[in-house]
Structures are given as structure tokens and as C-alpha cells.
Design a protein around this nucleic acid. Structure first.
Lengths: 231, 231
DNA sequence: TGTATACAAGTTGTATACAATTTTATCAAG
DNA sequence: CTTGATAAAATTGTATACAACTTGTATACA
């Protein structure tokens, strides 16, 4: 029972997405058509269609005449990210609380269970993917086709940024991760209660947490540069 | 000097975009690969790549096994549109005022000149395209890669909705269009003055105007349905 | 040594042929 | 007439061959 080409195509697509989200494929890394086409048993034609699809979703960048690369992550993107995220994210969360169906709430709880498991087993990649899934579901709940495109781009780089600025924690779970977990639980409660304001407020808190976590990397420890320093 | 394939490809892409924005291609209409490939001197392979690109940008929808169609426009999209537009649009406008370069401001003025010309010559398609271009430039000015995807989807349907709910005005220019023109001028001024708050406020006014214009169609004139009516 | 040019190798882009799927037309049975 | 099954036509999806372009390497020249 050999897989239909259609399946191989979506397997490739899922694979690339996972590799990119977990930073297994680094930003700027180029994707080898020949190698991938070989590895997934697809000719270059459908492969290139997958590339274009992923480019449209922001995973990949196509440069005319010189193939596909994993989308870049720069300081500018980091800046843009924290500018746009609270607004979009708050709006999604608010709409999610207003519109979520029971089936969607179940899926959100599933995602949170996976997230908690990943925390317990101390598996950063699984954690990042579960977190991504959690927020994807809130996006579905919101169901606004105009907000989704930006939201999904934010989710891509949310995953990648959190993989970048991840500091393995020696003694048990970090305080940040515990807070994130609890905020997820509170979000589920707010959505179930259809409390849009609470959900939006939690979104704000959640980004505040992310921002603090990342700023502790970008501005390392109490940097105390002597005046006139030229480095 | 026959055009390179690369050019034919972008000509096709531009053509499709224009037809879709001006509603020459109706929402849901399907795009004939064979016919287009014939008309633009391209084989199906690059043609299909263009379809995927446009699908990524929201112009087109691809349905597995049954080709490409022009993206739908429904009541739900209309609802989503007016929910998302003020927020995204306001943010773009604010960022545009903060970040616009002089070259970009020049391009914005060019777009506005084209818009005014289209008003004077009473050319609805040219007007809609010039309006689209105007707002595209504000998007470039804002330069936030996470906001752009949603913004550009809004622009697509802004153009299409305004073509749908356009009522040809008998005696000269409608009050709505004059207001829109003046708001554009005020936006240019706010951006030049780097006045982010003014720019954001103008964005709000601008959407208010659009919403009123469209609501006058959706809720025709003072509908006075007798109680107990079952239609 | 450094730079420029020419050539070779590798990669990307397009066209065409073929396979798979969906749509349409035909016709028989209820 | 309508419904359902079947076959033909049309359309979509994939593979492969070839063309165009980019990149890397070698050699000639300053």
C-alpha cells in the first residue's frame, strides 16, 4: 500500500514546517530541491509547488533564480514581532472567547495536555510545537480570515524565537515556563466562560512574559559599559 | 525582442490581480489553466506556480483536484472585514507616520494624484486601483512584516467590496468620494508631519466612512418590516 | 599576488508527455 | 421524468527532458 503522491506531498510539507519551527532548519539555510525530491519520492514539480505554498505562509523565502531558503530572522524581525504581537494576539484571544465552539475547546485542552507533558519530560522541541498548536487552535476559534495571516506568521516566529532564546534549566522547570503553563490554563477558562476581556488581558500578560524572557538574552546581564567605550 | 518567460509570468500575475481587484473576475469564478496558458504563452507549470503564489496572497483559492478559483466574498467575510480593518489599518497608519521615508511619501503623493484623476474622470476601476495603490504604499511605509499579510488581504477585499457597493453618481462626484479624497490628503499631511496619532485617527475616520457607505446598501432604506412578518 | 575572463558544473525554470482524477454525457431501470 | 450506473471527455497532477541561468574553478594577464 504505497502512499499516494498527495500524501507524500503533505508529508514533505509537514516535515519542512516542523524542521523550520523547531529551528532544525536554520533561518537562511537553503533547501536543496534535488535532495528533498529524492528523499520524499517526489519529482521537482510538486516539490516546488510546496515551496511556493510555504513561501506564501512565511516559512520560506523564494529568491528568483536561486532557490528557496528558510525565512530569515533578524533583529528587525524581532523588533517588528514585539510591536505587532500584543495587538494581533489580543484580538485573536478576544474573538476566540466570543466564538469558540465546544469541539474547539476540546482541541485546545488536548494541545495544553501535550504542552504540559512536554514540560514534564523537559522536551523543548515538543514544548514549542505544542505551544504552537495551542495558539493555532485559538486562531481557528477566532475564525477571522483577515487576522489569521498575520497571526500565523507571528506563530511561526514565536516558535522560532522561543527555540532561539531557550536556556536549558538545570534544576526542574523554569519559573517562566510554569507561568506560561498557568496562563494557558487561565486562557482556556476565560474562553470557556466566554469572557473576552479576561482572554484579551491574558494575551497581554502572555506577551509580557515572552518579552521579558527574551530581553534577558538581548540585554544580557546588567550591562555596565564604561563611558566612551568603543567596542 | 520577445519577452522572457520571467516577464510573461509577471504580466500574467499582474493581469490576474487587476482583474480580481476590479471584479472583472468575479469571486468564485474559476480560472482556466489551458486558456490562460494559451493566452500568455506560458506552459502550465509556471502558470500553476503563479496560481499558488496568488493563493498565498489571498487572491485565489486552490481546491485540490479541481483547479483555482477567485477568492470568495461572502457575508461572513464582510463581517470579518469590518471587525479587523480598523485595528490593522490604524496600526499601519500609525507606523507609516513614524517610519515613512521621503521617497515613500513621494510615491504616496503620486498615488493620490492618480486617485484624484480617476475621481475627476469618473472612472471607478481606476479609482479603486489607485486607492489600492495608495494604501499599499502606507503598508510599505509601516514596514512591519507581521502586519503586512493581514493588511494586504484587507486591501484586496477593500477594493472588491468598494467595487461591489459602488453606486454610480448622477450629478458630479459623490460626497463620500470627496471625503475620501480629503482624508487621503490629510493622511499625507499627518505622515509628512510624523504625527502618528493624527494618522491613526484618520484611519478610523476613513473606515467609518467606508462602513457607512456599505451599510447604506446592506440595510437599504429605513426598512420598515411589519411585526410578525415571516419572510 | 590580485584581477579578469572563459569554461565547466551545478542549479533553477519551462515545456511536454503521461497518469490520475473529476466532470460530463449516455443510457438503462425504476 | 427521475435516478443510478457506466463510459467518454476534460481537467488536474506528476514526471522527465531540456533550456536558461548561476556559481564555482581554472587559467591568462597585469
Amino acid at each position: 500500500m504505497t502512499n499516494a503522491a498527495k500524501d507524500r506531498k503533505s508529508i514533505l510539507s509537514d516535515h519542512l514546517i516542523t524542521q523550520i519551527l523547531t529551528m532544525a532548519f536554520k533561518p537562511g539555510e537553503d533547501l536543496d530541491e534535488a535532495a528533498l525530491s529524492d528523499a520524499f519520492g517526489l519529482s521537482r514539480t510538486p516539490l516546488r509547488e510546496v515551496f511556493r505554498e510555504l513561501a506564501g505562509q512565511g516559512y520560506v523565502e523564494l529568491r528568483a533564480g536561486r532557490g528557496a531558503r528558510v525565512a530569515d530572522l533578524s533583529y528587525k524581525t524581532l523588533h517588528d514581532f514585539f510591536l505587532a504581537a500584543p495587538m494581533i494576539y489580543g484580538a485573536i484571544q478576544r474573538l476566540a472567547a466570543e466564538n469558540a465552539t465546544l469541539a474547539q475547546i476540546d482541541r485546545l485542552k488536548d494541545a495544553q495536555r501535550a504542552f504540559v507533558t512536554a514540560l514534564d519530560t523537559n522536551d523543548p522541541m515538543a514544548r514549542s510545537l505544542a505551544n504552537n498548536r495551542f495558539h493555532q487552535v485559538t486562531g481557528e476559534m477566532a475564525g477571522n480570515i483577515y487576522l489569521l495571516p498575520s497571526f500565523q506568521r507571528l506563530l511561526i516566529d514565536h516558535a522560532r524565537i522561543s527555540m532561539t532564546f531557550y536556556r536549558p534549566h538545570p534544576a526542574g522547570m523554569s519559573a517562566t515556563l510554569i507561568k506560561a503553563r498557568d496562563q494557558h490554563d487561565a486562557m482556556i477558562a476565560a474562553i470557556e466562560a466566554r469572557d473576552a476581556n479576561a482572554a484579551a488581558a491574558l494575551a497581554d500578560d502572555h506577551w509580557q512574559l515572552s518579552r521579558n524572557q527574551i530581553q534577558s538574552f538581548v540585554m544580557p546581564a546588567a550591562l555596565d559599559v564604561p563611558m566612551g567605550s568603543t567596542t
